[in-house]
Amino acid sequence: MSIMDHNGGSVVAMAGKDCVAIASDLRLGAGAMTVAMNFEKIFPVTDRIYLGLTGLATDITTLRDRFRYLVNMFTIKESRSIEPSTFAHLVSSTLYSRRFGPYFTEPVLAGLERTPSGGFKPYIAGADLIGCLNFAEDFIVAGTASDKLFGVAEGLWEPDLGPEDLFETISQTLLNSVDRDAYSGWGAIVYIITPEKVITRTLKGRMD
């Protein structure tokens, strides 16, 4: 078993119409043994950016702390909050700084990017464990259930979904994918990011 699968866990992000969604399961394991059913893998970066981290749990926590530090220092120095595209490159360069001894995490980020005209544009991106960015117009998946997530998301996602439809799509995608993965599950948490507010919902799945 790869070290990326030791703790288990999955994250998916989807783009909608003027909104994005990101969701994860809540399991933390040590191999096949479940240790906690409340382990969150998605963290707020700003009011409009959420970062999901899958892979080795120790690195998830370390990177969460590190990104919080880096983003706070950015905010202090720049007197403004960071944009998703800028943050994506911060993630990339942070991971690449450990090119030959990497953090074992695959990040997924979802946010709303400010456009020059003052509006917001959905922005989702993923990266591998050494920081190679992957931008998508539709969805990004990561974690031990990523293969299943790809399949279900491919079938369910459609363009220009509103916040509530996007919530339904991402929730069904995640729940049905983690049901076929022994290393993910134990409920889920979903964030829908709209220009006005962020909606947070916790879901129960097959709690076994």
Binding site: D65, R66, R68, Y69, N72, M73, I76
Partner: peptide, 13 residues
Amino acid sequence: ARSAAQQHLLRYN
């Protein structure tokens, strides 16, 4: 002060 505060946050959460 700001960076000291952030370093504390990083160390002790």
